[in-house]
């Protein structure tokens, strides 16, 4: 019998990429409008079998975030690089996919007597859902606080999902985008458990796992990914991390004010956040103090100890502006022209 030569690629081969695309999100400007979420959903997950998936999400921090309690579901690596066990988010954890009694209320003459009510994809009343805790945040009056946490696949440089897939169905493109080959995926979900950010979603109909594809068909046409391009708050920068002219390079490598979420997960993520400079806190006499309203420990919990240095740089540069001095960093963050944010990816979608 003729034997086919089916070589199994190594994990190193699957994880290798020549360059790395990266996204920077300025949390000082994100207003939680969900435009990025809608842009993504309209393009990629507005499907009957994918309503529970939000490849792009914005949740309120602190909180259980999205998927619910992903920070407690394991995955990633310890400091020695050992793979860590992880759990699978349920349909409810994934934000559910409510249906509503639109027909009954709006089209059958019941508008005055019946209320619109959601039903869980699992049946019955919802237990939890996407943005269930919107704007709750933490802290007591007069110092409540919250900020928005936009999240998508980090297209990690050490992607646990690639490592986890026993089918070798997940790989990095040469530009660093991590993709799941839908022809090879058998839906075993080791990638979902392994991703410490829980940014891989299982499709129970196709029985394959799906994730953010960084809008690669747009990238191939030099069009920025939809979430980045659609942000009306001008929070986003996008480009190659080694492109010294790109805003991502300048914010991450040069000014060092954009830092990854949970760097301790050990996957070297490539979505970077400009951490929030919170408002000043009030004291017991309702007088403003020099204290930040968001506790340092909270920010360090998300972004690691590197957050303090990044915040110090941001605050110093903002102070310069306040004093009427020039600050190139503040000008970059203001970002008056959208073309300045997306490096070579400034073509229009057609």
């Amino acid at each position: 019998m003729k034997i086919l030569n089916n070589t199994v690629p190594s994990k190193q081969q699957l994880m290798a990429s020549d360059r790395q695309l990266a996204t920077v999100i300025d949390l000082n400007k994100c207003m939680g409008c969900q435009s990025c979420v809608v842009a993504c959903k309209n393009l990629w997950t507005e499907r009957e079998d994918a309503h529970h998936m939000r490849w792009m999400s914005v949740a309120t921090a602190p909180g259980s975030l999205y998927p619910r309690d992903f920070e407690k579901k394991g995955g990633g690596y310890d400091q020695q690089g050992n793979a860590q066990a992880g759990e699978l988010p349920s349909m409810v954890d994934s934000g559910d996919a409510f249906t509503f009694n639109h027909q009954e209320v709006l089209y059958e003459g019941n508008a005055q007597s019946k209320k619109l009510e959601p039903t869980s994809a699992l049946g019955g009343a919802p237990e939890w859902g996407y943005n269930w805790e919107e704007d709750q945040g933490k802290g007591e009056w007069p110092n409540p606080y919250f900020f928005y946490m936009p999240r998508k696949c980090n297209h990690c440089s050490q992607p646990a999902c690639v490592d986890a897939c026993s089918r070798n169905a997940i790989y990095k493109r040469e530009d660093g985008i991590v993709l799941i080959d839908q022809d090879k995926c058998e839906g075993h979900r080791h990638c979902v458990a392994a991703c410490p950010y829980k940014m891989i979603f299982f499709n129970p109909v196709t029985q394959k796992s799906e994730k953010c594809i960084e809008c690669f068909p747009r990238i191939d046409q030099k069009i920025a990914s939809a979430c980045n391009r659609q942000c009306p708050g001008r929070t986003r920068a996008f480009g190659f991390l080694d492109d010294r002219n790109s805003l991502v390079y300048r914010l991450v490598e040069e000014f060092k004010v954009a830092i990854p979420l949970h760097p301790e997960y050990g996957t070297t993520p490539n979505v970077f956040y400009v951490p929030p400079m919170s408002p000043q806190a009030f004291d017991d006499n309702n007088e403003l103090t020099d204290e930040m309203r968001i506790p340092d420990s909270v920010l360090e919990g998300y972004f690691g100890p590197g957050v303090h240095k990044a915040l110090a740089i941001l605050l110093a540069e903002r102070e310069k502006k306040k004093q009427g001095e020039a600050s190139e960093l503040m000008d970059l963050l203001i970002s008056r022209k959208w073309q300045d944010r997306f490096a070579e990816f400034t073509n229009h979608p057609v």
Binding site: V8, K11, G75, N82, A83, Q84, A85, G86, A160, D163, A164, C165, S166, N168, H188, H190, A193, A194
Partner: peptide, 12 residues
């Protein structure tokens, strides 16, 4: 035995 194919699965 197949840890090289998935160190995560091998933790099971």
């Amino acid at each position: 035995m197949i840890e090289h194919l998935s160190p995560f699965m091998a933790n099971s």
